[in-house]
Every structure is written in structure tokens, then in C-alpha cells.
Design a protein around this nucleic acid. Structure first.
Lengths: 379, 379
DNA sequence: TCTGGCACTCGATTCTACCGAGTGCCAGCC
DNA sequence: GGCTGGCACTCGGTAGAATCGAGTGCCAGA
């Protein structure tokens, strides 16, 4: 079901080649109902669903076939059926209308973005709240990494005679700080001189750029610069921990029936590194939904993850993710992630000042950065 | 066992005047066992507990009396008994040995503080993790408020022609930022001039101090200063949101049996304002434990909160809190909160540089700030 | 090829019986 | 008087049987 396989032009039954139209409709009915009720779905219900106009007997035999093919399972004989991960996958790939938010949600998003004008962190944080409100899932918002932002300002601020704070402002508006212990008491003039020297050296460069300072002759100054340089390097290393905001984890408490599952999923969410790399991984594989074990991350096998890139001026600058049970409401989640991701991206673009002289500012460089239209499935 | 009530020299039965020694021992046995097993405790178990050397029949009649007095309840006739909030309260006030951590925990704490040397935020964050590991509760660490810290440095950094970032460094090492929109394109010189003017005006003052700038004659400069002043004010307002770190919320998933309780407690934890003010309130009332409804906050009625002040150089600079079910392990939680709070306070004191010239730096000003020895009860 | 019908399955629910941990009370003992 | 062993009683929890009903598979007929 890669886009390659997929764009072959042929009749519907060929496009969905694995499943004829009726089976697809039945699968859709099962998934939809199961998402709503969390109960195994029987042939009777499916037969009476819109979009299916055959008798329950026919539905039964089709459902048996779907089970054979791995799209459905029966929890036990003589019970209704439940979608498998594969079933959800088909649903997401083929059966989901290009999700639109309901009017009230749409308004909620609009109002949110009209009203929010804050520093980046607050905005991201509150966005994660918005997303979890919209979808009743836990939401993760990963903010832009600062790796590509040039240093705009460096300053050493004295806190006490032997302690200074190195404050670095990046072009994207982020501020990093790190305390620097000084070997000897240093006065304001020394720190000012050091700040100036530092600024000459690193302003305009990336944080990760090496910081080597030519000896200036002044030993005291050189010692301070060395300490500051070390702090800069540490800062660049430590920059892996992006800004991650998790919204509405409490939603998960009701999403699963087993407490143990809740606990383990929550504890995953606490490890932000894991979450971020999971989202990255899913995005990099070109997915916008990872269902069950598709992401290969065992502890979240009973979850589905919906991701959307956060693109700012055409660049992928982060990600937003929704985490819920595999029986989550995919259309809604996809729509919410998509819309909010887009709006947030624009918003960040605005607040960075679009006329910024950051490297590469031509407004139209669509080529290389992934431009996603309605991409939503595996390809 | 409040220090005040407690130091009265009289027989034990007077110190515990509400409960004779045997009742106290029985109550202790019930609480201890219930904390361990989460099952109603019957007279048989109590009778065979260390510290109780009477028959189960006697225990029964004592337990009936304890129930009469409101220390215990029976979930239903002919079941064992469960402590009430009042029962836990007595336990905490009178029966808890001045909690000591086990050797392995002690070592864990030591190792943690030996190894952690980071910026404040990371340290607080990781401390919340440590606490939740130690106690199997959710932990909250509220960092020092910046209200009392003087401004050390102010700087306007240009991000784009019409957007600047106001960066304020406080004496405690905190860095605040806020973006400032400029009415017109402003060059580096203008921003530098504005920074200098701002610095002259506010460095050494508190953030909350009013920022009024005498017109300088230069209209362009004045406009920038006005915008920056507004940003400063906003910053001071917004400063309510202290640095709050919640560790190990996933622990709560297993602590309660009703999922709904889990959800609601988790969602409380998401609202950091609420949590902070709750901790403040409990601390202000001189408690170190708030059990059940004692804090008057309905949604957490089934929880107990253990708090410890975070005092830096004798000042209360924040708080640490532990949140768990009322049947949490109080001795352990109290000990952990106490020890970690103390160590963290020292640590923060160190990293602020004890020779800081912040207002009032005499090393020995014990009077006004609350000096808590073994305070643990109702104060 | 679809449908109605039918026999069958099996989880969920209900009911009953019963067990046993726990209680309250009381008579007797120290 | 206070503690203890003994006893009758309570009542939640568990086990087993009966029942219900949603759901299935299969088949004969339209």
C-alpha cells in the first residue's frame, strides 16, 4: 500500500485490490461502530449500518472472509468482531474521508489561535492542551529544534563574584543559559570584555559550531573565555532535549481498560526523549498514523499514534502527535492534527518574523522540504 | 507529636490524651497493615501484630471504640476496619517515628545529589523524578519564585527588523524573555541604546518594581522603551507561573482502584496553578501532611499530600510535594520529602553562590523565616 | 448470489449455596 | 474490673448451575 503501488489507474476494486467494495464498506462499518462503542460488532449491526445494504447473513460470510484475511478478529466464538491493526490500517488508508473538523471544533481552533499570542513555550504548551481537548487523546507537541538557528547574542552576566551566567539568544527567539563557574573573582568589566569577545566570535554562527578562542594575551580574560567556551559546548550538546509538551495525559486513564496499560503508557509519556524519537521515527517513515505495533515500539502496542509535521516556512520544524488507543477516532484525530499543525506552523512562522535574515529566506523553496498534501497513509 | 504539644512532660497517656496507649498501638497496627495490604484489617491480625499483646476479643472492643471515636470505619458489617482520615491524622501526628530512609534510599539520594550539577530547571525536574522513585508517589517540585530576585541584566536583542526579544536575567540565575514588537524598523544601535537605558533604570530593582521611563527626547528611542517597559510589566505579571515540575504521575495509575479517580487526580496535576496554590496553602497552614479533605480541595479528597518547604539559606524558596492515596506510606514519604527538600535547598543555595550580594546576605538570620525542626503535624 | 431460517456456541447475568473472615456479646476467669 | 475464650451471627466473595441472548456457521431455497 505504498503510494507507488497505489497510484496505478484502474477501477476501484483494483485500487483497493485487496478488498472488494462491499468488504470495504463492511470493514468500515465495523471499525466505525467499534470506535464508538468499544464493543465487538455483530453482523446485525453492520447490516443495518448506512452503506451496507445486504442482509446480515451476507455480512456474516463477508466478515468471516475478512477475519480470514486478518482484518478482523473474534474475541471468542460467537461474539462480534473487532478490527485488527491491519483492519484499522485499511480503514485509515482507504476509508477515511479527508477529515474535516466539526464546525464547533473548527471554531475552537480559530478562537484559540486568534487569542494566543505568547512566547513560544507557552504557545506550544497551550497547543498541546487544545489538541487533547479536541481529540480526547493525549497530545504531544514538539517544538522547533534550535539546531539550525544562528546565535544572535551572547552575554555573560555576573551572579556572584565567582559565578556568571552565560546567556545565549538564538535567531528563533530561544534563550539558552548555563552557569559558568569562574576560577577567580571577576568584575563587571572583565565579564563585559569577555562578552564582547565571545560575541565577536560566535554571533551569527550555529550553537554547534566549534568555539575556539585565540589567546588574547590577557590571561584573566582567556580563562573566562575558556570557561564560557566550555559552557557553550555543553549547551550545544545538551540541545538534544528539544521542547516537548505533553497535553492531557489524564485522557489516557479512561482510554484503556487495564490499569496496567494506563500506567505503562503514562510512564512512556514521561520519558520525553522516547516520545520525541518515536514521533521522529514515524514521521521519517512517511506515516501519519502508526497503529499498534507498526512503530515497532513494544510498550505502546495497544496504542495508535497520529503525527503531523510542524512546518514553518516550508521546513519541518517539529511535530505534533496524538496518542490514544488503537480504537481512537482516526478521522477526527487526523483532521485535528493536520489543522492544528498547519495553523501552529503559520503562527510560529509569523512570530519568528518572516523577514528574518536567517539562512535561506526566499519565500518559495518548496522543492526539498516534504510538501504533504493529503498524505495520510503509509506512503 | 507536634513539637509544641509534645514537649509537655507528663505521662504518655497525657501526651496522647485523646487515645490511651493501647488504642494507639491498635490504631497504629491497623494503619500499618492497611497501608501494606489495602485490605480491611480484622481484629485477629491486629492481635498478632507486634506492639499489641492482648487477645483479639479485646482488640475487637477497642476497635469498636476507635470506630465510635471516628478513627476507623467498617466498609460493611462484619468486615475488617479501615482508617479514616482522622485515623491517619493521629497516626501521622503521634505514631510515626521521625522517619528515616532505608540505607539504599539514603544512598540513592546521596548519589543523586553527588551527580547532579545542572541548571536549576533540570535539577528540579530530575529531583521530581527522584522523589517519585523513592516514594512511588507522584511528586511535585516547585522551584523558587523569582519575585524577590533583583534584575541583574536587561537586554534587547533584535530578531528581525520589527521584532526584538527582551531578555532579563535575575539575580537568582533565572532568565526571562518576552518578545517585543516594534512599531518601526530598528537598527542595532537603537536597540543597544534602549538596552542601556533600560539597564540604567531597572538593574538592581525587582521585576515587579514599576518601570517608568522619563522621556529622553529621542522619540524613536522612547517608543522602543515604552514597548519594552510594557513587556517588562507583562513579564512581572506573568511571573505567577513558577517553575513547577511533576514527576511520576504514572504512579497514580496503580494507586487508586477507580479509574475515574485516577483520571480526575491526573487532570488536577495537569493544572499546575492549582497544584502550586494547594501546596502553598498547606504549607502556610503549617502542615506537612494534608490527608483527605483536610486541604479543603474536593477533587483530591481521596488523596494525601505530603509537603516540605524548600528553604534556601533560611528562606522558604519553594516547596516539594508528594501526592498519593490516603493510604500512602507516610513515614517513608515524610522522610523522603524532608531529606530531599533539605538537600535540594542546600544545593540551590550553593549554586546561587552563597556569597551573592542579594539583599540580606548575613549567614545567620534565623529569626523570621520559619525554622522547622521536626514539625510534621498540625503545627 | 443473496437471503431467511435454524441449530449451536458461549460470554454475561442471575441465583443459590456455602465458606470463612470478621463482628458483637456474654459468661467466666484472673 | 478488665481481659479472655466461646458462640451465634453477618455478609462479602466465590463456586456452580441455570438461563439469556447476541452472535455465529451453515444450508436450502428464491
Amino acid at each position: 500500500m505504498t503510494s507507488a503501488t497505489h497510484h496505478r489507474e484502474s477501477a476501484d476494486d483494483e485500487a483497493h485490490k485487496e478488498l472488494d467494495e462491499r468488504k470495504a464498506a463492511i470493514l468500515e462499518a465495523v471499525v466505525t461502530e467499534y470506535i464508538g462503542t468499544a464493543q465487538p460488532v455483530g453482523s446485525g449491526h453492520v447490516a443495518s449500518a448506512a452503506g451496507v445494504s445486504v442482509s446480515s447473513a451476507t455480512v456474516r460470510s463477508e466478515m468471516a472472509a475478512l477475519e480470514q484475511d486478518g482484518y478482523l478478529v473474534q474475541p471468542h466464538t460467537s461474539a462480534g468482531r473487532i478490527p485488527t491493526d491491519k483492519g484499522y490500517r485499511f480503514f485509515v488508508d482507504h476509508l477515511t474521508a479527508p477529515g474535516v473538523l466539526g464546525p464547533s471544533e473548527r471554531q475552537q481552533v480559530r478562537r484559540f489561535f486568534d487569542q494566543v499570542h505568547l512566547e513560544m513555550e507557552d504557545m506550544l504548551e497551550r497547543t498541546s492542551g487544545l489538541l487533547s481537548d479536541l481529540t480526547s487523546c493525549a497530545a504531544v507537541v514538539v517544538g522547533p529544534s534550535h539546531e539550525q538557528a544562528a546565535i544572535r547574542s551572547v552575554q555573560l552576566v555576573g551572579l556572584s563574584p565567582r559565578l556568571a551566567l552565560l546567556v545565549v539568544v538564538l535567531a528563533d527567539g530561544a534563550v539558552e543559559k548555563r552557569s559558568v563557574e569562574l576560577a577567580e573573582d571577576s568584575g563587571a568589566e572583565l565579564l563585559a570584555a569577555a562578552s564582547a569577545a565571545l560575541a565577536r566570535e560566535v554571533v551569527g554562527h550555529l550553537l554547534s559550531g566549534a568555539a575556539n578562542f585565540a589567546p588574547s594575551g590577557d590571561q584573566q580574560l582567556d580563562r573566562v573565555l575558556a570557561a564560557a567556551g566550555a559552557a557553550l559546548t555543553e549547551m550545544a550538546m545538551g540541545e538534544e532535549n528539544d521542547q516537548v509538551f505533553v497535553g492531557g495525559p489524564s485522557r489516557l486513564a479512561v482510554a484503556f481498560d487495564a490499569v496496567e496499560t494506563v500506567r505503562s503508557v503514562l510512564s512512556i509519556l514521561e520519558q520525553q526523549l522516547v516520545v520525541v524519537s518515536l514521533l521522529r521515527d514515524v514521521l521519517d517513515r512517511g506515516l501519519s498514523v502508526a497503529i499498534g505495533t507498526e512503530h515497532g515500539f513494544e510498550p505502546l502496542a495497544s496504542c495508535a499514534v497520529v503525527v503531523a509535521p510542524l512546518s514553518v516556512d516550508g521546513f519541518e520544524a517539529g511535530a505534533i502527535g496524538l496518542l490514544g488507543p488503537t480504537r481512537m477516532n482516526y478521522p477526527q484525530a487526523l483532521a485535528a492534527a493536520h489543522v492544528v499543525g498547519e495553523r501552529l506552523g503559520e503562527r510560529i512562522g509569523d512570530s519568528l518574523g518572516r523577514t528574518s535574515d536567517a539562512p535561506a529566506s526566499e519565500p518559495d523553496r518548496r522543492g526539498s522540504p516534504r510538501k504533504d498534501g493529503e498524505r495520510r497513509g503509509r506512503g
